[in-house]
Amino acid sequence: MIKLFAMDVDGTLTDGGIYMDGSGNEMKRFDVQDGQGIAALIKKGVKVAFISGRYSAPTQKRAEDLKITRCVNGVKDKLPELRKIAAELGVTADETAYAGDDVPDVECIEWAGLGIAVANACAEAKKAAGYVAKRGGGRGAIRECAEMIIRINDGEAAD
């Protein structure tokens, strides 16, 4: 049973693009279907966390809008944060899923009982993952993963 689904943001929950204007304002594109997947997981009792390597106001706002359990926004060493969140929630590594796309995510992917790389992930992340999503970051990968976690938790076979 997966009790915690944690994920990277840039390149995983988004397509990796960062839009900036000349004044330094930042915008990101989030997939509505990914948001629906996260909402479905929360409704099923799964805790959801964002662990982002760079601070971003849009990431914080998205976390608030989705009412996720925890948002760690702007941390370079992600694994200690993932372990801390799991420990605070009383969740083991085997009860944790983590999705990422790049080298800073590899340790988290390896630590989690269900390590996931999105389709556009780098080779190192894909190699570390037990599951590689068919869809890319910011393009429905998190929805795909959410649906898989719900199937796992409901006792159905995963794809």
Rank of each mutant, 00 (worst) to 15 (best):
V91E: 04
A93F: 12
G100T: 09
K84E: 00
A97G: 09
P104Y: 15
G90W: 12
G90Q: 14
E88D: 09
V118A: 07
I116V: 15
A93Q: 01
A119N: 05
A117D: 06
I116S: 06
A112I: 06
R83D: 09
G115N: 03
G115W: 08
D105Y: 01
K84T: 00
A87S: 14
A87G: 02
K84V: 00
D102C: 11
G90I: 15
E110F: 01
E95G: 09
E95R: 10
I116F: 05
G115M: 05
E95K: 11
E110W: 02
T96R: 08
N120P: 03
N120D: 01
A117T: 05
C108V: 05
A99H: 06
A99F: 06
I85Q: 13
A86D: 13
D102Y: 09
V103A: 15
I109R: 10
A117Y: 04
Y98M: 00
A93S: 01
T96N: 07
K84M: 01
A119G: 03
D101E: 09
E95I: 10
A117L: 08
V103H: 13
E110P: 03
E95A: 14
I116Y: 03
V106M: 11
T92K: 10
D102H: 09
G115E: 04
W111K: 00
E88H: 07
I116E: 08
C108D: 06
K84Y: 01
C108F: 09
A93P: 00
E95V: 09
E110A: 11
D102T: 02
T96V: 10
A86I: 12
A119Y: 02
D102R: 06
P104E: 14
D101W: 04
R83W: 05
P104I: 14
I116Q: 04
N120R: 05
A87P: 01
D105N: 12
A86K: 11
L114V: 07
I85Y: 12
Y98T: 01
V106F: 01
A119Q: 04
A86F: 15
D105K: 06
N120C: 02
P104W: 15
D102E: 13
T92S: 15
D101H: 09
D102I: 10
T92A: 05
G100L: 06
Y98P: 14
D94W: 13
V91C: 03
R83S: 08
G90H: 12
D101M: 08
G90M: 15
V118L: 04
E88R: 13
